[in-house]
Measured scan of single mutants.
Amino acid sequence: VSFKITLTSDPRLPYKVLSVPESTPFTAVLKFAAEEFKVPAATSAIITNDGIGINPAQTAGNVFLKHGSELRII
């Protein structure tokens, strides 16, 4: 599955597209996205474009099915 993750704390709204296997734990996606944007993973969260928080204790495939591919990291 592929996710387009936007960094909301930067006024330029940079984004990265990450492709991972469906079975990947979403905690790993969060950690990798945080490292890519050089923000601390421990204090970061991934939310939907509607501002709904995503529980990272599920697979990337589940997140994709529930929330789609466009996400934000805060």
Results as ranks from 00 to 15, higher is better:
residue 36 E to T: 07
residue 52 I to H: 06
residue 64 F to P: 01
residue 66 K to C: 08
residue 38 K to N: 12
residue 23 S to Y: 08
residue 45 A to K: 15
residue 6 T to V: 08
residue 35 E to H: 13
residue 45 A to V: 08
residue 73 I to V: 07
residue 67 H to P: 02
residue 49 N to V: 04
residue 44 S to I: 15
residue 20 V to Y: 15
residue 9 S to P: 11
residue 46 I to W: 02
residue 14 P to F: 06
residue 59 T to E: 10
residue 61 G to L: 10
residue 43 T to I: 04
residue 39 V to P: 01
residue 20 V to K: 01
residue 20 V to G: 01
residue 23 S to K: 11
residue 71 L to H: 02
residue 16 K to Y: 08
residue 63 V to W: 01
residue 20 V to N: 01
residue 57 A to W: 08
residue 34 A to F: 14
residue 36 E to V: 06
residue 35 E to F: 08
residue 68 G to R: 02
residue 40 P to Y: 02
residue 60 A to T: 03
residue 29 V to P: 00
residue 68 G to K: 03
residue 45 A to P: 03
residue 27 T to I: 12
residue 26 F to K: 00
residue 59 T to D: 09
residue 1 V to K: 03
residue 72 R to F: 06
residue 17 V to Q: 15
residue 59 T to F: 05
residue 47 I to V: 15
residue 19 S to A: 13
residue 34 A to P: 01
residue 2 S to Y: 06
residue 48 T to H: 03
residue 56 P to T: 14
residue 45 A to Y: 04
residue 56 P to S: 13
residue 28 A to I: 05
residue 41 A to F: 06
residue 11 P to V: 03
residue 51 G to A: 02
residue 61 G to Y: 09
residue 73 I to A: 01
residue 8 T to Q: 12
residue 58 Q to F: 09
residue 55 N to D: 15
residue 5 I to Q: 01
residue 69 S to W: 06
residue 16 K to V: 14
residue 7 L to G: 12
residue 30 L to F: 14
residue 54 I to R: 01
residue 56 P to E: 14
residue 26 F to T: 08
residue 20 V to L: 13
residue 7 L to D: 08
residue 11 P to C: 08
residue 39 V to I: 12
residue 38 K to L: 07
residue 13 L to E: 13
residue 64 F to E: 04
residue 68 G to I: 00
residue 39 V to A: 07
residue 33 A to M: 09
residue 7 L to E: 04
residue 2 S to G: 03
residue 10 D to S: 07
residue 5 I to L: 14
residue 51 G to V: 00
residue 28 A to L: 11
residue 52 I to E: 11
residue 43 T to C: 12
residue 45 A to D: 06
residue 47 I to R: 15
residue 48 T to L: 01
residue 52 I to S: 10
residue 20 V to R: 01
residue 46 I to G: 01
residue 69 S to R: 11
residue 68 G to W: 00
residue 54 I to V: 06
residue 19 S to N: 12
residue 72 R to N: 15
residue 3 F to Q: 00
residue 37 F to S: 02
residue 5 I to V: 09
residue 59 T to Y: 09
residue 74 I to D: 15
residue 73 I to L: 14
residue 64 F to K: 09
residue 57 A to V: 08
residue 16 K to H: 13
residue 51 G to E: 06
residue 63 V to D: 02
residue 10 D to A: 07
residue 56 P to R: 08
residue 72 R to A: 08
residue 58 Q to V: 03
residue 47 I to T: 15
residue 47 I to Y: 12
residue 23 S to M: 13
residue 2 S to A: 05
residue 20 V to T: 08
residue 31 K to L: 09
residue 70 E to K: 10
residue 34 A to W: 14
residue 48 T to V: 03
residue 46 I to D: 02
residue 38 K to T: 07
residue 67 H to K: 05
residue 30 L to W: 15
residue 28 A to E: 11
residue 54 I to W: 00
residue 2 S to F: 07
residue 53 G to K: 15
residue 42 A to D: 12
residue 35 E to N: 12
residue 42 A to Q: 05
residue 70 E to Q: 09
residue 44 S to D: 00
residue 58 Q to S: 09
residue 47 I to L: 13
residue 18 L to H: 08
residue 57 A to S: 13
residue 49 N to T: 05
residue 33 A to V: 08
residue 43 T to P: 01
residue 70 E to T: 05
residue 67 H to C: 09
residue 55 N to H: 06
residue 65 L to I: 11
residue 43 T to M: 13
residue 19 S to P: 06
residue 29 V to H: 03
residue 64 F to R: 07
residue 49 N to I: 04
residue 74 I to N: 14
residue 29 V to D: 02
residue 56 P to D: 14
residue 42 A to G: 05
residue 43 T to V: 05
residue 59 T to H: 07
residue 60 A to P: 00
residue 54 I to M: 02
residue 34 A to Q: 09
residue 46 I to M: 15
residue 58 Q to K: 08
residue 3 F to A: 00
residue 66 K to F: 05
residue 48 T to M: 03
residue 30 L to A: 15
residue 54 I to F: 01
residue 19 S to K: 02
residue 40 P to L: 04
residue 54 I to N: 01
residue 8 T to H: 14
residue 71 L to F: 13
residue 40 P to D: 14
residue 45 A to Q: 15
residue 2 S to V: 06
residue 39 V to H: 06
residue 38 K to Y: 07
residue 6 T to Y: 06
residue 21 P to I: 11
residue 33 A to H: 02
residue 54 I to D: 02
residue 60 A to D: 02
residue 13 L to K: 12
residue 65 L to M: 10
residue 37 F to K: 01
residue 49 N to R: 12
residue 50 D to W: 03
residue 4 K to H: 07
residue 42 A to S: 09
residue 9 S to R: 06
residue 35 E to C: 08
residue 66 K to H: 10
residue 37 F to H: 14
residue 47 I to P: 01
residue 44 S to K: 01
residue 23 S to P: 13
residue 58 Q to Y: 09
residue 56 P to Y: 15
residue 5 I to N: 01
residue 36 E to C: 07
residue 54 I to A: 05
residue 38 K to Q: 12
residue 17 V to G: 05
residue 65 L to Y: 06
residue 68 G to Y: 01
residue 40 P to F: 02
residue 26 F to C: 15
residue 53 G to V: 14
residue 16 K to W: 04
residue 1 V to D: 05
residue 56 P to G: 15
residue 42 A to Y: 03
residue 8 T to I: 03
residue 21 P to N: 13
residue 8 T to N: 12
residue 40 P to H: 05
residue 21 P to Q: 10
residue 7 L to A: 13
residue 18 L to S: 12
residue 68 G to N: 03
residue 58 Q to P: 00
residue 62 N to Y: 05
residue 26 F to H: 00
residue 55 N to M: 09
residue 16 K to D: 03
residue 51 G to H: 04
residue 73 I to M: 15
residue 21 P to S: 13
residue 34 A to R: 14
residue 28 A to R: 12
residue 1 V to N: 01
residue 33 A to S: 10
residue 7 L to M: 12
residue 4 K to Q: 05
residue 60 A to R: 00
residue 33 A to Q: 00
residue 46 I to Y: 01
residue 72 R to Q: 15
residue 28 A to M: 13
residue 73 I to N: 01
residue 57 A to Y: 09
residue 64 F to W: 08
residue 74 I to V: 07
residue 42 A to I: 04
residue 33 A to W: 02
residue 19 S to T: 11
residue 59 T to W: 03
residue 41 A to Q: 11
residue 25 P to F: 12
residue 59 T to Q: 09
residue 40 P to V: 03
residue 56 P to L: 15
residue 4 K to P: 00
residue 66 K to A: 10
residue 47 I to A: 15
residue 10 D to Q: 07
residue 62 N to F: 05
residue 38 K to P: 03
residue 50 D to G: 09
residue 6 T to E: 04
residue 13 L to Q: 12
residue 26 F to P: 02
residue 25 P to L: 12
residue 46 I to V: 04
residue 16 K to M: 09
residue 20 V to S: 02
residue 23 S to F: 10
residue 34 A to S: 10
residue 58 Q to I: 04
residue 18 L to K: 06
residue 49 N to P: 10
residue 45 A to F: 03
residue 26 F to Y: 04
residue 28 A to D: 14
residue 2 S to K: 06
residue 35 E to L: 07
residue 56 P to W: 06
residue 19 S to H: 11
residue 37 F to R: 02
residue 55 N to S: 10
residue 62 N to D: 10
residue 40 P to N: 09
residue 2 S to D: 14
residue 66 K to V: 11
residue 40 P to G: 04
residue 69 S to D: 04
residue 40 P to Q: 05
residue 54 I to Q: 00
residue 17 V to I: 05
residue 40 P to M: 04
residue 43 T to Q: 15
residue 3 F to H: 00
residue 69 S to E: 11
residue 46 I to K: 01
residue 38 K to S: 09
residue 46 I to N: 01
residue 58 Q to H: 12
